[in-house]
Amino acid sequence: MKRKKNLGLLFVAFSLLVSCNSEKKQTTPDTEPAHKELQEEKTKEVKAPEQIISITEAKQDYDNYTKKRAQLIEKIEDPLEDGSKFIASRYGDYDIETVKNYIAYVEQEAKEAGVKVETLRFYFSTYPDKKDFPDHKKVKHPRQNSFFILPTMKVDAMNMGFYIKDLGDGKKEAALIRDYPGILDSKMGDTNKENSKSYASFIPATTSTPIMFSDQSLIMNKTTMGPPPYDSDFN
């Protein structure tokens, strides 16, 4: 009797296994097209952007900057504290994951504020002649030329830089950089007028008036600039 019972349980288990395998086989053909489409999407060829330039043109542009900009910058800048010559920067580095994450973050914040990112605007800038930034982080190379990235949105057929205001209750609003307190006067950054102009790599937290925690900058800087140390792909 016990043997018959065991055989019965074995038969039931076998029947369930066959049934499951049969269902898997039936569903496989339905899922194959979607899987193939996903693979095709992943392997889709990306065409070169129209903005790509030749290596020869890049070399010419690099040399032109050396002669007409970098040499002039180095000429008017005083030597460093240790007496060494001031060297103008030629490039800035971001690792590719940082760039991807930045774009994703900017698009996320813009979407939540109900606007569309039109462009990423690169502003030339210069670090202050100080040891520390207003956020108390060290200025690695005072007076060094740099750049920062500012996303823009469309306003009356013009692209204008913006930041995000948190209105509470999960609501966000895009506001123009030019309307931020202190931007269009000498209150931003250093009280010294000359240094205020040179300290272009700002974030809203550098204003002399208290910033509301709901104001979120989308400006990216904090990159690795070079030289120094002096190394370049073009000379």
Score class of each variant (00 low, 15 high):
147 F>Y: 15
154 K>F: 00
77 E>S: 13
151 P>D: 11
128 P>I: 08
193 K>N: 04
139 V>R: 07
131 K>T: 07
132 D>Q: 12
172 K>C: 06
179 D>I: 00
134 P>Y: 08
95 D>T: 03
137 K>L: 04
137 K>E: 11
123 Y>R: 03
193 K>W: 10
104 A>L: 04
89 S>T: 13
184 L>E: 14
181 P>S: 03
151 P>S: 12
121 R>S: 05
139 V>M: 09
158 M>Q: 15
125 S>W: 03
127 Y>H: 15
162 F>I: 02
143 R>V: 03
81 E>Y: 00
83 G>A: 08
163 Y>Q: 01
76 I>V: 13
134 P>C: 06
195 N>Q: 11
104 A>T: 04
154 K>Q: 08
102 Y>C: 03
110 A>G: 10
82 D>K: 04
80 L>N: 15
147 F>G: 06
92 G>I: 04
75 K>C: 02
120 L>F: 15
196 S>L: 07
100 K>V: 09
194 E>K: 12
82 D>I: 07
195 N>E: 14
173 E>P: 00
109 E>S: 06
131 K>V: 02
153 M>H: 01
164 I>E: 04
91 Y>W: 15
86 F>P: 03
178 R>C: 07
141 H>N: 14
121 R>W: 13
121 R>D: 09
91 Y>Q: 12
158 M>V: 12
83 G>S: 10
75 K>G: 00
123 Y>G: 05
92 G>T: 07
86 F>H: 07
121 R>Y: 14
143 R>A: 07
180 Y>N: 02
134 P>W: 05
100 K>W: 06
78 D>S: 11
91 Y>P: 00
110 A>W: 07
